[in-house]
């Protein structure tokens, strides 16, 4: 049996097998592949719980807020109620971080500020200060240093003015805080009223965007699949504090994968401990 000559198929000819790394050939503070990031540790590093997949060397992991680390915590970790989700890696060696095969990227801040969705932040150098953003569900990093963030698909940078889908927003740098933009254009008029009354025709799913203006960068992830949101804790109820005293709402509403870790304030038998119970793993 003879076959006709096959048309050329677009197979890649540069096939590569898996690369083997050792303690010396692992990249230094760089991506191993799009989904894993290698940190050269000499001192301490903050990372979210459960994001370390491997390490070389002598590294210890301790929960934030343990004994001798409290001083470090006070200086660099300014979001005390969020502390239960973070650990400090201390020692020397190389540490590989990964998160459910999401794309990882490192970002350098130079006397800057960057606000990132709390579930997307993986690790940061202690030279940066972590604070809770006044936008619920977001954390702000201040200062100089490097941090690692995850996104579903590569991150795309855009310069304002731009309006972005709430689920596609990873974070923003330097711009003033975003505001809400509602687009109910098609809800107006006779047909629009009919649509609103009857629900016929449904919604476009894009009535609501975040609007960014001013100078800076907006970070977009290429899909609308959200990472589970990390609770950023509860802000004290004070007049003038947005979201103060209320359980975090985050961005709920039927998003896939939005398994949020909200502090359960109504845990029976815990009295008024509130979020404390969660901190101590109760």
């Amino acid at each position: 049996m003879s076959y006709p000559p096959q048309p050329t198929l677009p197979w890649s000819t540069a096939g590569q097998g898996p690369v083997t790394y050792d303690a010396y050939s692992l990249p230094v503070n760089d991506n191993v592949n799009p989904y894993a990031f290698s940190v050269e540790l000499n001192g301490s590093y903050f990372l979210q719980k459960g994001k370390m997949v491997a390490y070389y060397g002598d590294i210890s992991f301790q929960g934030v807020g343990h004994g001798a680390l409290d001083r470090l915590l006070g200086q660099q970790f300014n979001s005390p109620l969020h502390a239960s989700d973070w650990v400090v890696a201390q020692g020397r060696g190389k540490m590989v971080l990964a998160d459910r095969a999401f794309d990882l990227n490192s970002y350098d801040l130079d006397q800057g500020n960057l606000t990132v969705r709390s579930g997307n932040l993986l690790a940061f150098e202690p030279t940066l200060a972590l604070k809770q953003s006044i936008i619920p569900g977001f954390l702000t990093l201040l200062g100089t240093g490097k941090f690692v963030a995850a996104s579903n698909g590569p991150v795309h940078f855009m310069e304002p003015p731009v309006r972005v889908d709430p689920q596609a927003l990873v974070g923003w740098a330097d711009c003033p805080a975003p505001c809400h933009h509602y687009d109910h254009h098609y809800m107006q008029g006779v047909l629009g009223g009919l649509r609103r009354l009857t629900g016929l025709g449904g919604a476009s799913g894009e009535e609501h965007q975040f609007e960014f203006v001013g100078a800076g960068q907006v970070l977009l992830q290429s899909s609308e699949a959200l990472m589970p949101e990390r609770s950023v804790g509860q802000v004290d109820a004070e007049p003038g504090v947005p979201g103060g005293g209320l359980p975090q709402q985050g961005y709920q509403g039927g998003h896939q994968g939005g398994g949020q870790q909200l502090p359960n304030l109504q845990v029976p038998g815990l009295g008024n401990l509130g979020d404390l119970g969660r901190r101590f793993g109760l």
Partner: peptide
């Protein structure tokens, strides 16, 4: 597809298509 917009620049409107 509905809900597939990630971001936009300019004045763009999104209308559900009956």
């Amino acid at each position: 597809q509905r809900g597939a917009m990630l971001g936009y620049r300019g004045e763009v409107s999104f209308t559900p298509n009956l």
